[in-house]
Design a protein around this nucleic acid. Structure first.
Lengths: 343, 343
DNA sequence: GATTAGCACTCGGACACTGAGAGTGCTAAC
DNA sequence: GTTAGCACTCTCAGTGTCCGAGTGCTAATC
């Protein structure tokens, strides 16, 4: 085997051994487990060269080697072979997701839960950007004497509900009136266009009725904003406790970051390929810089796509997790497109 | 001051100093901060006695004293004076909760979020047991060509929605028929009575229509089960990272416990007084045995009440947190009762 | 030129030792 | 019942030593 190729093999073996054991990898151990016959001294020379290239490092002078972030990068980009899911794993994923495929939000939450369980990582599923959604229909349902619920249905298959209260007794005639008035005003427009200015002009257009309908307008506004909002399901946070690289201070910061879907999305938004991997400090956020992220787009219709992502230790099983994530996002994309097309 | 009373004062001072600093409390430091004049030697004698009574302990022979669980217990039961909330704090709580008081689930989630923020603990809010709720009305809304949503409204003010799909094109006539059939069957019965057996007899009663309406029945069933289910909002898990008493293994176990509302409720169910405190191993769950729980009932109507709880380190500011929790549960109870009465 | 064997070297981890400091328990005096 | 004084105990931080794993280098070998 020619030397260059052997060095790559060694890098691959170091990464995989370190992912498996978490211990620095020594030349001797490597020599025994490698399938080509060279002495540990040769491997030492090669490892020294890999280290001078910045792909391996030592925790101290006389320890084994561990991969640097660059080493992981080369491994992920050039060396690793994806481990395809078994038929059993595939059907497991499908069977877990099918029952929750009744609504986009529900499905994404289910996908995040499932992914966090099978990978041991923290899983994130962002909903398709809602801004492009068109309001298809608004309905009102009386839920109590003074309370009612607005139901807003968008072109992306998303259904948002919002309860509100009136100062007066609600009657069927009133809800019908709400429905007519609101649909006339809101149907067909994009949820992104439901701005404060638009709401103000809507109130003005209602004239004296706007006093009666303040709460109705507010509820519709809330529902539309809800439909437009970036929404992310985050599951499996308990797995953070199994990641020793998370100093307790960082742990809190990461958890808080994850509850702000807007910022979270900004981090993931760069991922343009099918499944992309961000390693350590490649993630432009201090709290996450000791972790890795695997992100994958799912697509139902061209304008309707979102991201599934896994957050885990830098030392994670990339080949397996990339496969699991890609397969899951394919399934999610398919299920979502069925929801939209036939919805 | 008579000796017995002084010993209690010393216990109180030790607990409060330890809550504040987290450091074992020595006789000398105590002597300086105490408002009655005795020498450190006297305090040492008293502390030795408190230790022999099992109220104080030492981490090692020559360290200061820290309270035992029993010591905390005495402190909480007999010694501590609740610190009432300031007007400002009260109005802050009210103002944060009012906007989310449109639906019970929403309110409880808001209360848990708020409590976790102001206390630094993990906050839990369990919904009132839904089993007693009566189904008031079932409505159907078409959301797509093949999809519709069932809306189930109960006597407790809870509104549950569930999306479902049919194999046939849905028409207004069909949703009307769904509505009529389902209300005839389900209105007025308790959600707890929606058992598999009841569903089976419902399907039988529908005769040949039941084939058409399988998904409708399933959706109604799901919505009813959802309304009956014990539901708990858990917020502020990121605060677990600031509790060093949580070994990383326990952290994961606690987080997982919190996502199973049934088990969680079992732990809290014993709390019968207004605000009750469980300290360390008084909590009958191994993973939680190094933490404390403060739980408080909120009540809207006599049959409709639930629990708000705080989970934090044993060393937590009981006087302040008990007040905050009691005040919040009063507010939540009031807001909920308005929802039910006028709903 | 690539590979290997051998050896000196380096460093971290475990362990023991030390002195300072904090805090106690005990005793005898008040 | 309280207090002053003192010996005692134990932790903590710092230091020294030893061991072993693993390296880097050099010279011999293929």
């Amino acid at each position: 085997m020619e030397p260059t190729q052997r060095k790559l093999k060694i890098l691959e073996a170091v990464v995989e051994a370190f992912i498996k054991t978490g211990e620095p990898v020594g030349s001797k151990a490597l020599c025994e487990n490698l399938d080509f016959n060279v002495s540990s001294a040769t491997i030492r020379n090669d490892m020294a060269e890999l280290a001078s290239l910045g792909l391996l490092e030592q925790t101290h002078t006389s320890s084994g080697r561990i991969p640097t972030e660059l080493g992981y990068r080369i491994y992920v980009d050039k060396l690793m072979k994806k481990i395809p899911l078994t038929k059993y794993e595939q059907s497991h994923i499908y069977n877990m997701l099918y029952p929750v495929s009744d609504a986009p939000e529900h499905l994404l939450e289910g996908a995040a839960t499932l992914l966090s369980k099978i990978t041991g990582c923290v899983a994130v599923a962002t909903s398709p950007p809602g801004e492009a959604a068109i309001i298809k229909k608004i309905r009102f349902i009386q839920t109590g004497r003074y309370t009612a619920m607005v139901i807003l249905i968008t072109s992306t298959g998303s259904v948002k509900t919002k309860l509100f209260r009136c100062d007066f007794v609600i009657t069927p005639e009133l809800t019908e009136m709400f429905e007519e008035t609101m649909n006339k005003r809101f149907s067909g427009i994009s949820v992104a266009d439901v701005t404060p200015a638009f709401m103000q002009s809507s109130a003005a257009a209602l004239g004296e009725m706007s006093i009666l309908m303040t709460n109705v307008l507010v509820a519709v506004n809330d529902a539309a904003r809800d439909a437009a909002a970036a929404n992310a399901a985050v599951k499996g946070q308990s797995n953070f406790f199994t990641m020793p690289e998370l100093a307790s201070g960082d742990g809190k910061r990461v958890m808080e970051l994850l509850s702000h879907s807007r910022e979270l999305e900004k981090l993931l938004i760069d991922t343009n390929s099918r499944a992309s991997v961000l390693i350590g400090s490649e993630i432009k956020h201090p709290a996450l810089s000791r972790l890795s992220v695997i992100a994958s787009h799912y697509t139902s219709t061209p304008e309707c796509s979102g991201i599934l992502a896994l957050i885990g230790p830098v030392r994670m099983n990339y080949p397996k997790l990339v496969s699991a994530l890609e397969y899951t996002s394919d399934i999610v994309g398919n299920m979502l497109s069925e929801l939209v097309e036939y919805g």
